[in-house]
Simulated assay, not measured.
Amino acid sequence: MEKKRTPIFFAPFVSSTMEVLPAWIDYNGHMNMAYYHVLFDRAVEEGFGLVGLGPDYLEERRGSFFAAEIHTLYKRELKMRDPVRVTLQLVDFDEKRVHFYLEIRHATEGWVAATSEGLSLHMDMRTRKVTPFPEDIMANLAVMKAAHSRLARPEVLGRVIGIPNKSALNEQLVTSGTRH
């Protein structure tokens, strides 16, 4: 029997190059928000496929992982035919969950188009219930986390959506030295 090799992870993981397709362009002339999630999802599949959570994991072991929560920030428009790559940073994991951070970057110019913070749950597809990761997947996640722990923690992690009240906004402007 062939011995399984421990995967090597780059920090961060960088997806293959993808392209903004014409069908993804909306009436505003830029990529519709839904397709940012398509790009993020493809990168998640590529990145976590390296730890053993790819399509063969579903087929052979009847396990998968489902999105539980996603927080996306749209920073810059993407237009038709723009080439992009997505970086993935494993922030944390436990026996049933993975917490990760993604950035869509223009593949040739390097600017960030969008960021996403996600939390996914490991699923037993026979019961469709949350279940612990197998030991080999946990070990691979630990190797990925060790590689990614050298990266800076993204400032936008844990960000809350909301409109700040006026007094909080004024306090923030005063402490930053900006006045309106």
Results as ranks from 00 to 15, higher is better:
Ala142Ile: 04
Asp92Ile: 04
Ala114Thr: 04
Val14Leu: 12
Lys75Gly: 07
Ala152Gly: 08
Arg85Asn: 07
Asp92Thr: 05
His122Ala: 01
Glu60Ser: 09
Met144Phe: 07
Asp124Leu: 03
Ala67Asp: 03
Tyr74His: 13
Val84Ser: 00
Ala23Leu: 05
His148Ile: 08
His180Tyr: 05
Val156Arg: 12
Val143Gln: 11
Ser116Cys: 13
His106Val: 12
Asp41Ala: 08
Glu103Phe: 06
Ala67Ser: 04
Ala114Asn: 06
Arg61Gly: 12
Ser16Ala: 14
Arg150Cys: 02
Ala23Gln: 08
Ile137Lys: 14
Thr178Val: 15
Gly118Phe: 00
Arg179Gly: 10
His99Gln: 13
Gln172Ala: 15
His37Ala: 05
Tyr27Val: 11
Glu45His: 14
Asp82Tyr: 12
Gly49Ser: 03
Ser116Leu: 13
Met80Pro: 04
Glu109Ala: 09
Leu50Pro: 04
Trp24Ala: 11
Pro164His: 08
Val51Met: 06
Ile161Leu: 01
Ile70Val: 01
His148Val: 06
Tyr101Asp: 12
Lys145Met: 09
Arg85His: 06
Glu155Ala: 14
Lys75Ile: 12
Met1Tyr: 05
Gln172Tyr: 15
Arg128Asp: 02
His71Glu: 02
Asn140Val: 02
Phe66Lys: 01
Glu46Tyr: 07
Lys4Pro: 07
Thr175Gly: 02
Leu50Cys: 11
Asp136His: 15
Asn170Phe: 10
Met31Leu: 14
Arg126Ser: 01
Glu117Ser: 09
Leu53Glu: 07
